[in-house]
């Protein structure tokens, strides 16, 4: 990759190449028994790291560990745990 002058990005959507998973300290873990598949975590995740499902799937290449999903889950099916690496 050659850097463009002035940090101009000429390729739209290339933030996909930047894996924010490296920022993560706490890791979301979903309890499939509690999950209702409502999709709120998918909606709220700022990194679009969650795929909808029951239970949802979390892409750890992008999950930055912010905990928003755990905060928003109406049935408390997501808990943030230290140290997970998948």
């Amino acid at each position: 990759m050659k850097l463009k002058p002035g940090a101009v990005i000429t390729e739209p959507g290339n933030s996909e190449k930047y894996e924010t998973g490296g920022w993560r300290t706490f890791c979301p873990s979903v309890d499939p028994a509690k999950c209702t598949g409502c999709g709120l975590c998918w909606l709220f995740c700022p990194e679009a790291a969650i795929s909808k499902g029951k239970p949802p799937k979390i892409d750890l290449r992008y999950c930055k560990g912010c905990g928003i999903c755990a905060n928003e889950c109406p049935v408390k099916a997501i808990t943030m745990k230290e140290g997970c690496r998948q």
Binding site: L3, K4, P5, G6, A7, V8, I9, T10, P12, Y18
Partner: peptide, 22 residues
């Protein structure tokens, strides 16, 4: 790199520590 809706570019992105120095 002139701003042009036909050829979208991003100007002034975040310079994360991995790239800022460069």
């Amino acid at each position: 790199y002139a701003l042009d809706p036909e050829k979208p570019v991003t100007m002034g992105p975040v310079g994360v520590p991995e790239y800022y120095m460069e």
